[in-house]
Design a protein around this nucleic acid. Sequence first.
DNA 1: CTGTATCCGTGCCGATACTG
DNA 2: CAGTATCGGCACGGATACAG
Lengths: 129, 129
Amino acid sequence: MPEPIKKLPKLPVERALKVISGRWKPVILCYLFSGPKRLSQLKRMMPDITQKVLIQQLREMEEHGLVDRQIFPDVPIRVEYNATELGLGLEPILLALCRWGQRHAEERDEAVEIADCIVRPRHDQTIAA
Amino acid sequence: MPEPIKKLPKLPVERALKVISGRWKPVILCYLFSGPKRLSQLKRMMPDITQKVLIQQLREMEEHGLVDRQIFPDVPIRVEYNATELGLGLEPILLALCRWGQRHAEERDEAVEIADCIVRPRHDQTIAA
DNA sequence: CTGTATCCGTGCCGATACTG
DNA sequence: CAGTATCGGCACGGATACAG
């Protein structure tokens, strides 16, 4: 069988979480928010991730419409990944999660070294009710 | 060993995602947003979850400071779970995720039956940049 | 540079049975 | 009513080697 076609949850919240959950997906997305990146660039930015896994995560995000993949038939070949409109829609949410994560760390761990947030607001980042 | 003390990721985004990721956590949280619930109530609200798993998820959320557990020594015994301040801070975020999930479903699956969102805005739900 | 193939540990979570 | 104990499947992701 080629691909069992994995189904996404019906509940919107679960669906969203399913799509952005993955060991490296949020980080990759954060990097892509600042513009298209090549595979080698991403590898350099995240030295701890295996190449196989990196591509794997990118493929899944592509399949879910978060990431767009462009091939340039140069020599050597060049491939660029960038966030789609749908993917960009996650920026304010990830930013909010980042803020919440910081608060969580401060309120609980006290003296835990808190890494800087990768997500950076660009234009207006507001989620209205 | 009693408990290896699981560490949370250093990056705030990952930390936040780690904490709210779990097969049933978002759903449970959504229900708790509308007020304290007893175990039996939650079971009735989510017939598909096993009791063991339900308690498991609740324990983890308790450990992470999202949920508060109160025991009332009545006969028979009564236990109430409710969202903490930290947990309540997730409401607007889950709401945003819900919205994004709906958009995602609409833009991609076309004719997928989209379940209604459980999360409901109460007061002012806004995430500012 | 960009990718694929294989192997395998570990963690999540579901089913089921039992306890105070 | 609220909770614990045990067992086991399966998806996720890390290591490593190979390929166009």
